[in-house]
């Protein structure tokens, strides 16, 4: 088990393996995304309360799910990298950040687009929307901190520490938001979950969640490969791999 793990974490082996697996994740995920979208837009019946407007759930829920899942991946990878000093784990965290930030932005935009017809307003200071916004800020903070170091090793550890602090902070912000909004007796909002979701509405959603997870996996593998290349530039196996293509001159 441990020898297998070490072999996986060794950069050249990971680079080769990720290159092999990547396409096998990407194409199925795109196919499933297409099927799920078709199911959500065409096959699923309209909601009896929200009409066709509820179909925004098929992009809002997968992107919101990805935004938090990716942050969890980022934070766990950072913790592993800090504790056991595994460079590959830091590479995973660095690779996950931009993907997570982009899907957090999509979750916010689709939430606003859903809020307008259902609540009558694009933005409501609802605790979940607020924590999603803060999550986006934390992603931005993580990426800016990483970018502000020239030394890659320093950038890895400083931003990793920030990611771990963020994990403690996120639930605090979430529950503060719940408490805070429970004090403001604003307009009583329907939550953005489709009420009593039925089977033929549910399967496209589950399919899209699965597909987006696979899609994230494919993107992550590709970006970690790039990170590994940047980190290992001066090592022997990179020279063996890329030395020939440079020509003799």
């Amino acid at each position: 088990m441990w020898t297998w793990f070490h072999k996986l974490a060794s950069p050249p082996h990971f680079y080769r393996l990720a290159g092999l697996i990547g396409p096998w994740l990407l194409w199925p995920s795109l196919l499933l995304l297409a099927v799920g979208t078709y199911g959500g837009l065409v096959l699923a019946p309209a909601d009896y309360q929200q009409g066709d407007g509820f179909r925004i759930i098929y992009v809002h829920v997968p992107s919101a799910y990805l935004s938090t899942t990716i942050y969890a991946v980022l934070a766990v990878a950072s913790a592993i990298g800090l504790i056991w000093r595994i460079k590959l784990a830091h590479a995973v965290a660095a690779a996950a950040a931009p993907i997570g930030a982009s899907f957090t932005a999509v979750a916010l935009i689709s939430g606003a687009l859903w809020g307008k017809p259902m609540w009558g307003t694009y933005w409501e200071w609802d605790p979940r929307l607020t924590s999603e916004l803060i999550l986006l800020f934390i992603y931005f903070g993580y990426m800016s901190l990483r970018a502000s170091f020239e030394d890659l090793n320093q950038a890895d550890r400083a931003s990793g520490l920030l990611a771990v602090i963020g994990v403690v902070n996120l639930p605090i912000i979430h529950y503060s938001g719940m408490w805070w909004s429970s004090l403001h007796q604003g307009p009583s909002l329907k939550t953005l979950d489709a009420p009593s979701i039925s089977g033929d509405m549910l399967w496209p959603l589950l399919l899209l969640i699965a597909a987006s997870t696979l899609f994230f996996g494919a993107l992550l593998l590709s970006r970690v490969r790039a990170e590994v290349l940047d980190r290992e530039q001066n090592s022997r196996w990179i020279q063996d791999l890329f030395g020939d293509s440079a020509g003799a001159g």
Binding site: I134, I138, S144, S148, L161, I165, I173, S176, W180, L183
Partner: peptide, 29 residues
């Protein structure tokens, strides 16, 4: 976290403000 970073003013605000948010919410409220 930003001690080694030059010109860290804006970065520091970006890192720290989300962390300070709960204190602000409870205090002002």
């Amino acid at each position: 976290l930003t001690a080694a970073v030059r010109q860290s003013g804006g970065l520091l605000a970006l890192l720290v403000l989300p962390l300070m948010l709960p204190v602000l919410m409870f205090g002002a409220r």
